[in-house]
Nucleic acid binder design. Structure first.
Lengths: 185, 185
DNA sequence: GCGAGTTGAGACATTCATGTCTCACGTGAG
DNA sequence: CTCACGTGAGACATGAATGTCTCAACTCGC
């Protein structure tokens, strides 16, 4: 009954609550026997690797969909601004599903996921660098730091929603505005 | 030879590298036998609880040292600004030692640590609220969100230094400036 | 030098997650 | 109906981490 994708989705959902959940718990969460779970994923690492891959897929799709490369190449301030808005919205949507991937330590232990993650981060650096060159973002700080700041705000956003301090519908504008304008009045 | 504090310090250092390190590994890292480690800390939870407590101690000390409450009560914009600068520097110093506590999931599973953490967060909310009232920080977003943003930037800072993207000596100014002014030019 | 106290090494039992395997059951296609 | 297939439940072996215990060695104060 439960397809592989449904199992993955359930595991994802549950790992967002408890990142240390055991295979038995994840199987139960998917409404599936432990044996069945192992039929789909030989090992726990397999499962995490698949989830990690999917989260990177989403990240990559977001960059593609926002045409980060093309926008960066254009150097057009307006387009860059729109692209950043778009990207934040996409990231925040993804973090609903893959939030646990933001801080889970498994990802950093899988070399192939790490190198791929580094490549994607590099694409982001390109965009932010272009944004600096176009005068959209300040250029007195490194673009690499700005990518870290983006990441940090995503973690903050996830936490804020989890604790009920921010309504999901306000989140996009809140995070973007905080990133761009900061907290000063 | 190794005092309890030295063991704690070593464990802290090592958990910053590998948050899942076993008791055996932590004992070795402290240059101490596994039995000795257990003499000081009955269980792994004990050890983590102690480290969690210490990280909250540091947080509290930072708030005290910066006189967050007094400054908030004063409502003086200049003092509030100075206090924020001071606080960020203290937090960043602490995150060198207790960085792992930022994202480790153990802390959220210890109820007493959580309630204490909530109380400290509340003190921070008071300060940021006062900052908003004094016109230091924007008041079109909730002060609670601002505390999350502070937290997120600390995570980002830790990550940036770990990956060598930011020099430690630049960090204080960088983080504060990003928090206050954002990334926009 | 001696004795009390502490330590490290290691043996041990226990618990828990993991991964494999078997088997009975149910369902759907033929 | 029946047979093939996927599934769930559960047994099983394994490995890792944990916590306890003992003992020999070492150190420090006397």
């Amino acid at each position: 009954m439960a397809t592989r994708d449904e199992i993955l989705a359930a595991a994802q959902r549950h790992l967002n609550i408890d990142p240390r959940a055991s295979m038995a718990v994840l199987a139960a969460a998917a409404g599936v026997g432990r044996a069945t779970l192992h039929r789909h994923f030989a090992s726990r690492d397999d499962l995490l690797h698949e989830l990690g891959t999917r989260s990177l897929d989403r990240w990559e799709q977001s960059l593609d969909a926002a045409d980060a490369r093309g926008v960066a190449a254009s150097g057009d301030a307006g387009r860059i601004r729109a692209c950043l808005t778009d990207l934040f919205a996409r990231y925040l949507a993804d973090s609903d599903d893959f939030g646990f991937a933001l801080t889970d330590s498994y990802l950093t232990s899988a070399p192939d996921l790490m190198t791929r993650s580094d490549r994607l981060a590099e694409r982001e650096v390109e965009l932010l660098s272009a944004a600096q060159a176009a005068g959209v973002l300040r250029d007195d700080v490194s673009s690499r730091w700005l990518t870290h700041a983006v990441y940090g705000l995503l973690v903050a956003a996830r936490e804020a929603v989890r604790e009920g301090d921010v309504a999901r519908r306000d989140l996009d504008a809140l995070v973007l505005s905080t990133f761009l304008k900061g907290a000063s009045s």
